[in-house]
Design a protein around this nucleic acid. Structure first.
Lengths: 161, 161
DNA sequence: CTTATGTACGTGCACACGCACATACATCCG
DNA sequence: CGGATGTATGTGCGTGTGCACGTACATAAG
């Protein structure tokens, strides 16, 4: 056992490695295809979350938590979406520090137009290679990881506050 | 109304969404902890692949295919690693267009020093939330996706020649 | 050999992203 | 009420990243 820095780390590392590599392999393909359908993937992500939210609106920070993008990214994308008329910023009367982002009719329209392309791309580049049981296990298992890790916050970011 | 653009897309989209979100939640944490151990995660990735390669060396493009990083990123990271003395570029006598990247003794040393931290971080932020069966299904299922998608190449990337 | 086409690699440029900081407001305490 | 502390958001700046292109070499065609 002289050189075992690669291969014998256990099933956890192996599983994580596949997550990393699948992400790296699939994301660019989805991004291309969705962009070709007329929506940058960052726009799509924000519109999708907003459309699914209760009242179709969310505070910036909640949007950051629900979407894949960071808080700063959300702020900038929402500004872009505002200029494009797909989203509006509405002041929050109960807390004037925050504002709601609301999807507009035009935003919903654009989202609906792009959705079939996005879903088809996911099916084509990801889901079509797996059976229902595998998809179910992945969703459930990774859901547990998410629940645990989102609770623990950004560990190591700012010491033990 | 039939306004279901979020939630009723099927198990494939749901599973993919968890992959995206777990990636977004876990990667930054691993990056922090590995960086704190003295190695940027991009360096670690390259050293790991190189160390596991036959002869401990790989051509640039093979390195790009095996690692999570893009070809351009590999080129730049290898240059950084060279300056740090952790990797060397060796010309390929059989094909003078290409060169091998080889890990040095110092590189292996740095890799070994950081590996426990990296593995522990993966266990802590990912694997510890799952049982062996889930890890096994994830590795196998995502491995199938990888095999299929890597074969199909970068679909739609360069149409024009 | 000469020319045309394909492959491996590096790099300038523009853009995306996160960090750290600034601002506005809320809340708690005396 | 006035000051101190915490929260929600926006933004300048440095860094990381991919794209498009250039260079060097390989290989096929004549």
């Amino acid at each position: 056992m002289t050189d075992e820095t690669g291969g014998r780390e256990g099933p956890g590392v192996a599983a994580w490695a596949t997550v990393l590599r699948v992400h790296a392999a699939v994301v660019p393909k989805l991004a291309r295809e969705v962009a070709a359908a007329g929506l940058p993937i960052s726009w799509y992500d924000v519109l999708l979350v907003l459309n699914a939210a209760p009242e179709r609106r969310l505070r910036m920070s909640d949007l950051g938590a629900a979407a894949v993008l960071s808080r700063e990214q959300i702020s900038r994308v929402v500004t872009e979406l505002e200029h494009a008329g797909l989203v509006e910023r509405v002041p929050n009367p109960d807390d004037k520090r925050s504002s709601f982002a609301t999807i507009t009719a035009g935003g919903r329209s654009r989202l609906r137009a792009a959705a079939p392309t996005y879903i088809a791309a996911i099916e084509s580049h990801f889901a079509s290679h797996l059976n229902r049981e595998e998809l179910s296990v992945i969703a459930t298992a990774l859901g547990k990881v998410l629940a645990a890790e989102e609770r623990s916050g950004d560990a190591g970011a700012s010491r033990s506050g």
